[in-house]
Amino acid sequence: MLRSCRKLHPGRPRRCRRAVGLVGLVGLAGCVTVGPAQRGILAMPEMTPASDAQEEAFYGHVEAAREGAAGGHGAAGGGCGCG
């Protein structure tokens, strides 16, 4: 993959390698499974997207009236099941 950076982006192989490295790191993080006993911090309200739902609904309403854009206010209410 790192070699192919030279072929794909001969002008900027270093930037390409960094991007590949970053994607790799995120991928590795995805392989780590946090055990049920290690989820105390993830269960805190400030770490829980669902705890913002009421507030985000109001922001969504105000922004719809004042801005041309929309979204980003908790699409499907997805949680990590950390509770």
């Binding site: 995805g30 946090v34 699409a75």
Partner: peptide, 10 residues
């Protein structure tokens, strides 16, 4: 909408 949520670390 499609939402992806992931605990990457504790």
């Amino acid at each position: 909408s499609a939402t992806y949520t992931h605990a990457l670390h504790r």
